[in-house]
Write a protein that binds this DNA or RNA. Sequence first.
DNA 1: GGTAAATAACTGACTGGTCAGTTATTAATT
DNA 2: AATTAATAACTGACCAGTCAGTTATTTACC
Lengths: 218, 218
Amino acid sequence: MLADQVEKKAPVRRRKEARPQELTTAALSLFVEKGFAATRLDEVAARAGVSKGTLYLYFDSKEALFLAVIREGIVPIIEEGRKLLVAHADDPVRMLREYLFGWWALFGDTELGGVPKLMTSEAQNFPEVAQYYVREVILPGKALMREVLDRGVAKGVFRQTDSELVTHILMAPLLHLALWRHSFAVCCQVPDMDPNAYLESFFDLVLKGLAATPEGGK
Amino acid sequence: MLADQVEKKAPVRRRKEARPQELTTAALSLFVEKGFAATRLDEVAARAGVSKGTLYLYFDSKEALFLAVIREGIVPIIEEGRKLLVAHADDPVRMLREYLFGWWALFGDTELGGVPKLMTSEAQNFPEVAQYYVREVILPGKALMREVLDRGVAKGVFRQTDSELVTHILMAPLLHLALWRHSFAVCCQVPDMDPNAYLESFFDLVLKGLAATPEGGK
DNA sequence: GGTAAATAACTGACTGGTCAGTTATTAATT
DNA sequence: AATTAATAACTGACCAGTCAGTTATTTACC
C-alpha cells in the first residue's frame, strides 16, 4: 500500500530555546537589506522556518523584535573588542591600528555591518531603540577610541587634540565604509573599494595627522 | 448687504508653475524626517497645501516624486559648489578649507543635509534613484575633491596619496556630521556637537595628515 | 462690458492590496 | 490527559493610486 514510513512533510520541531536567536538572526539580515519598514514579519518568520504566529510567541511587536536584534547582535561585540584592545595597551599606535582593523573584522565585515545603516535610518522613528543603541554601542565605542587617543598623548606619540571631536571624526570613515557597502555598493556598479586598502590609507592619514611634532616634542 | 469684500474661505489658488517645487519641498522635509516608506502622500500634499489628487497631476508615482526631490534639490548645488572652489584654484589649502566649510554651509546645514541619510536608507529599495544620485551627486562631488588633492600635490603642498581612496575617506566625516544631525542628534539627548569646531578639528587633522614632509620637499 | 462656453486645476471619496497583530485550532511533548 | 508549541486563517487599519465630479480661469461671442 501507500508507504506510511515516508513522511509527507518535515515534522514540526519544537525548540523553544533556539527560536529567539533564529528569529533575530533572520530579522537582522532582512532589516539590513530592505530597511525596517519594508520588511514583512511573514518573511522574517519564513526565513527562520516558522510561521508569523510563532514569532509573536517570542516578541510582543515588530519594534520589540527590532530592539532584540540590536541587543542580541551587537552588545556582546563591544566587550569582545575591548578585550582585543587592552592586549596592546602599551603601544598606542598598534592599539589604533587594532581598533580600525578589528572594528572592520569583528563588526563591519559581518552581517552586523548593516546595523549602522539600519539605526541611522530609523533613529527618529524609534527613539527608544536609538537611545539604547547610543547608550550601549556608540558611547562605549567612542570611549574606547578616546582611551586610545589619551594613551597616545600620555606617551607622547600623539599630539593633544579635542578628543571628544576627534573620536567622532575618526569613527566616520569606518561607519562610512559600512554604510557604503550596504547601500550604493549593492545597487550601483561602483568601482569597488578594497576595505583593506581603504583602512591602510586611513590609518596612514590619521597617524600623520595625529603625530606629535617631531622637533617640538611633547 | 453682507460684506462681499470679506472672503469666507481662501480661494483655491491655481499655480501650475509653482506646484512641482512646492510639492518636492514638502516631500523633502518629510522624507528626511520620517523616511521614504513612513511618509504618506496625503501628508506631503497637505503640507504643500493641496490634495493628494493634485500631487498625482504632477508626479506619476511616489518613486517619481522621490527622484524629483533629488533632481530639483541637489543637482543645482553641485555646480554652485564648483564655482566657489575654482575661485581659490591657486591655493590648495584654502581650496580644501572652502570645500569642507562650503559643503556644510551650502548643503549639510540645510534641509538638503538630510538627503544622505535618505539615500543611504533607500538605495537598495530604489536602485534607479540611487544610480541617478551616484552619477549626478556623489561622483561629481568626489571628482571635485580629487581636483583639490591633485592640485595640492602638483604644488608640492600635499604629499602623494591614493586619491581614489582618500576622497572617500575625506568625505566620510562630512557625511557623518550630516547623518548624525538627522538621526541620533534629534532623538537622543546627546552632548551636542558644534559643527564649526568639528570642521576645524577635521581640517586641522587632514592638513597635517596630508602635508608634504617638510624636509623631504616634494 | 457682459455673458456663455470651453478648458484647466483641483478635490476627496473610493478601491484594491498589504501587513501588523489576533485567535481558533492542531500537533507535539510529558 | 494535560500542557505547551506552533499554525493558518482571520481582522482591521492603513495607504498608494484612481476617477467622477467641482471650481476657477480663460476664451469666444454678442
